[in-house]
């Protein structure tokens, strides 16, 4: 399989922070690749290196076989980039934005209409509306249309779904899967672990280092400890109590529940009894399958 992106031992300082430390990964042509990590993990820095906006302090980055330092101009004409913030002209209408970006890449909307049709059709009824007046989901569709209007071979999307409602997020990932069929290589970053399983492969990143690269399924399967989901009336107090227990290896808050692992095979009933004796009420404890987030927490902890 041909390699579309190759990141070779890249380090990058941003001010006083080492944003990336010896990062290695490569993305295959036509792959939907996810960079998964919390805010401040170095995802945006990675995107800026990929888009030639930054130059690595150490190591090399190639996109479509071109070096981001030497051949930056070649890269700039073949990537589509959607930065983390909404970066279109808010005072131009939907149509004006799209037309402008088409002309920036010396093309027209009509020329590549097939590619953006599915996405643009959804916002076309609002084409005379100013971009600043669009909803989050619509802004995102417009930004994606603008990034696609020149038929890029590589699409780089930095946190495209942040600040977007769940329905639009779901639709967005459906759109990415369609684009993949056009043989466009897509790199997408997200802080949402539930989105990670929509990618072909993911790289878990934290504090500027890659923790693990694999398929979402493998990453979840790699989690070999038994896992209990614990719910209770006072989640915070419950977490403090559980963390004090000798047999407990880890305990993390996952929204409305806690995920707990043990250093030995857990005795669910005995665990529940022990907690009840500590005065915790409304307890439900169920063994569950680990997800990507559990793997991430475990890897980040090590």
């Amino acid at each position: 399989m041909a390699t579309a992106i190759n990141v070779n031992n890249v380090s990058k300082r941003q001010g006083n922070v080492e944003a990336l430390k010896g990062v290695n990964f490569s993305v295959n042509r036509g792959e939907l690749y996810g960079l998964i990590g919390p805010d401040g993990a170095g995802k945006t820095t990675m995107f800026r290196l990929l888009t030639t906006l930054l130059v690595p302090d150490e190591g090399t980055v190639t996109v479509d076989g071109f070096d981001t330092v030497k051949d930056y101009e070649a890269i700039r004409s073949r990537v589509g980039y959607m930065p983390g913030r909404f970066s279109l002209y808010q005072d131009l209408t939907v149509e004006e934005n799209l037309k402008f970006f088409a002309s920036v890449f010396s093309t027209t909307i009509e020329e590549n209409y097939d590619l953006i049709k599915d996405i643009y059709a959804q916002i076309e009824p609002f084409k005379h509306r100013r971009a600043g007046k669009l909803s989050g989901g619509m802004k995102q569709k417009l930004a994606l249309s603008c990034a696609l209007v020149h038929k890029p071979s590589v699409l780089l999307l930095d946190e495209p779904t942040t600040g977007v409602d769940p329905v639009s997020r779901y639709e967005f990932w459906q759109m990415l899967h369609k684009l993949k069929e056009e043989n466009i290589t897509i790199v997408v970053s997200t802080p949402y672990m539930d989105e990670a399983k929509m990618c072909d492969r993911i790289a878990l990143i934290n504090h500027g280092q890659i923790l693990k690269i694999s398929t979402p399924k493998d990453i979840a399967d790699d989690f070999n400890d038994a896992l209990l989901e614990v719910k209770g009336e006072n989640l915070y107090k419950l977490m403090l109590e559980i963390r004090k227990m000798r047999t407990v290896k880890s305990c993390y808050s996952f929204g409305d529940s806690l995920h707990v692992t043990f250093s030995e095979t857990p005795d669910t009933e005995g665990f529940k009894k022990e907690l009840s004796e500590l005065g915790q009420g409304g307890l439900t404890i169920t063994p569950i399958e680990a997800g990507i987030e559990d793997s991430y927490m475990k890897l980040a902890d090590e």
């Binding site: 980039y81 930065p83 970066s87 279109l88 920036v104 603008c146």
Partner: peptide
Amino acid sequence: EVGTMEVLLVSPS
């Protein structure tokens, strides 16, 4: 400031 320069830079212009 708005970030559009970032997009313009990553273009052949």
